[in-house]
Each structure stands twice: as C-alpha cells, then as structure tokens.
Write a protein that binds this DNA or RNA. Structure first.
Lengths: 192, 192
DNA sequence: TACTATTTTCAGATTTTTCTGAAATCTCAT
DNA sequence: ATGAGATTTCAGAAAAATCTGAAAATAGTA
C-alpha cells in the first residue's frame, strides 16, 4: 500500500522539521504545523491539523497565528465552507526568504538596537580616554559592524523587495575562492 | 566615575547577548559567559566569572565547555597560576564564522540527513507514480536543494579552511541588485 | 436580529530546559 | 606518592517554555 508509505514519509518529515524548530527557538508544534502544510501542499482547517498532529485547538490556533506573522502560510477560504483553511507557501526560496527575514528581525535587530543604546551610554572616546574605554567602544563597533552587515545583506537579498536568495546563492557559489573544496562532504543521492 | 559607567555598559552588553542566546537555542548563561569574555577582552578564571555573573560553579564549567566546543573561546594558562583562564576570540569575523559553522552543524545538517533517509524510505517515482508521490519527492528535493546550498556555502566561506565571511559579505554587498536600497533603516550613530 | 459554527484567549497543568551545589575526580607542586 | 587546589559531574531543585481545555469573543447566515 503506497498510501501508508506516503503518510509515513510525511510524518517523518514533520517530525524532523519539528525537531529543528526547537533548535531554532520556535515551538515544536509551530514547526510541525508548517511542515504538515508544506509537505502535503493541501489547504487544511484547524480540525484536520488537530487530528493529524494530535494537539489541542488552542495550540493550533496560536501556531497558525505565528506562521501567518512569519508569512510562510496564508489563509484560504473555500466557497460554501465557513471554516478557515491554511496553506503553506510552496516555493522553497520564498519560504527561506521569509524565514531569513523573520529570524533577522527576532535575533539580530534587537541586538543592534541594544548596541546603539549601549554605545551612547558608555563613556565616549576622547583624546585622553583610558585604554579600557577605547577598547570597549572598539569591541562594540566590531559587533555592530558584523551584525549590521548581516542585516543589510538580508534586507538586500531576502527583504520583501529583495533580489532573492537564489541570486545571492548563485553569486556566492560561482565566486572563486582559490581553495580546494574536496573536503566538502558529498551527500548520497544529491541531485546535480 | 568612568569605571562604573564602563561596568554598566559591559553588563548591558552581557544582558543583550544573553537574551539573544535564548532566541538562538543556547542557554542564557553560556551566551553571557561568552559576552563577558568578549567585551572585557580579559582572560578570566572560573571564580571571576562566577562572581561577575552570579552563577554557580557547575554552570560556568558547563558553559565554558560548550564555548570551547564552539571554538569561540580558548584556554589560557598564566604562568605561576594553577587555575585555567579563558579568553574569547577577539576578531569579530572569526567569531561569526565559528557561530555560523556551529549553527549549521546543529540546525541544518541533521535535517539534511533526515531528508535523505525520508527520500529513500518514501515510494520512489516511476513512470506510473500517482501525483501524490511525485509531489512528495518534489517537495523533499526542494527543501534538500535549498538547505544543501546553504550548507555548501557555509563550508565554503565559514569552514575551517573557508574563504572567510568578510569575503562573502563583500561579494554580496557589491553585487548590483538593480533596486533602490533607500528603504533600509539607517541606524543612529552608525559608523561609516 | 438571533442563532450557531468557528476562532481566540488565557489560567493553570504539563513538559522541557536550565541551574545549583556538593561529592567525585583530576592535576600538579612538592 | 601525597595532598591542597582546581575542575567536572550529575541528581534533584528551580525556572522557563509549551500545551490544554473550556469559557469568551467573533463572524457568517438565515
């Protein structure tokens, strides 16, 4: 029975994606709901999701709301049905862009804001500053520069009007680095 | 008193970095220890870290071990002192490379392994495959392709023998994307 | 409007993660 | 080899995150 194998494979995908979710700092259920909608490609309603993942209505409601904020799923209305259905973005690159955008927003932007504040609050560098102060400001600037560049690039390539992650990836993949890449682990079954 | 302001600024940096740690899925203390060592630039021993961050000896021991695995701090021995001291990598780009490497290892590699397994376990596409099966394999391949590229690029630019994140960043920053970047939020006090 | 299917909210329960502290282990100078 | 100082380990405590379920709010239809 092919159907059973199909469900089994979907469930495994859902489990893997869910496990990754925890590493990312998003809840397991939220990741699982996304995985379910992505891997089946079907619009599903709250009850279908609850049944398939064995989680409560409240949990589905909260997970779905977050996923809508992340913009990796959208609401769909089926005519003649009062329920709301949800469908995942099917294009992988759009999905990755959305994830990159949201992660930067959550992980990097708050840090940059804090760095600006700290830099102002800290003693300013003047002509007779003690070495301590100079070093502190230098280190703050270092971090700001690094993460600032990451944010800028993310906006450039993954932002709502960005050039696209695929573009960035191609640029980088082609770039000559003048080193052997033989050490890269080749994956079984990888497509060319 | 400049000293007090200095400590205050350091503490704020430590708190921000620690808060980010939780979003990243690493423990707050681990991030705080790293922040402390980075922002002071000083080699510090276990007791100094305990006192400054108000955490237990065991917690410092475990955090330090993880940071050593991440390769963002290293052990230093001061002559004539029996204690071990720890010092953070001071170059921001090296630090970011180490973080990128470790996060890919923890977040992406396990997913890729799982995807390979699932692809094999799932029904294979043949000439008469039902649409379901074709769609499943197509979606699995999509995810594999996206994350596979991310891993490859990370190895290329952030790996132990990689070309360096700075190189990648420069390549991307220069790349013409043919769009306005005016929408990018400019940060107060940003250095040129 | 009134009715009811559907969704949201959130206090408390459950689960997971992190932290502590003291015992066990290690290590190095003598 | 010995022992004082330093580090690691890990069981249980504490804290944080997640989840449930039912009541409250909302939205669609007649």
């Amino acid at each position: 029975m092919v159907k059973a194998q199909l469900i089994e494979a979907q469930d495994r995908f859902i489990a893997s994606w869910g496990r990754m979710g925890s590493v990312w700092g998003i809840s397991r259920t939220m990741a699982e709901v996304h995985a379910l909608l992505y891997i089946t490609g079907q619009p599903m309603c709250t009850d279908e999701i609850m049944d398939r993942l064995r989680v409560s209505r409240g949990n589905v409601s909260m997970s779905v709301r977050s996923l809508l904020e992340w913009a990796v799923i959208e609401k769909v209305r089926l005519p003649g049905d009062r329920k709301e259905y949800f469908q995942a973005e099917q294009d992988v690159w759009s999905m990755l862009r959305a994830i990159a955008r949201e992660r930067i927003k959550r992980e990097v932007d708050p840090l940059l804001d804090a760095l600006d504040e700290i830099g102002e609050l800290a003693p300013q560098v003047g002509s007779h500053s003690p070495e301590d102060v100079v070093a502190l400001q230098r280190r703050l600037d270092g971090v700001r520069e690094g993460f600032g560049l990451i944010t800028t690039l993310t906006h450039k390539f993954a932002g709502p009007r960005g050039a696209g992650l695929q573009t960035a990836a191609k640029l980088l993949a082609k770039a000559p680095v003048g080193r052997s890449t033989k050490h890269l682990k080749s994956r079984k079954g990888a497509r060319p």
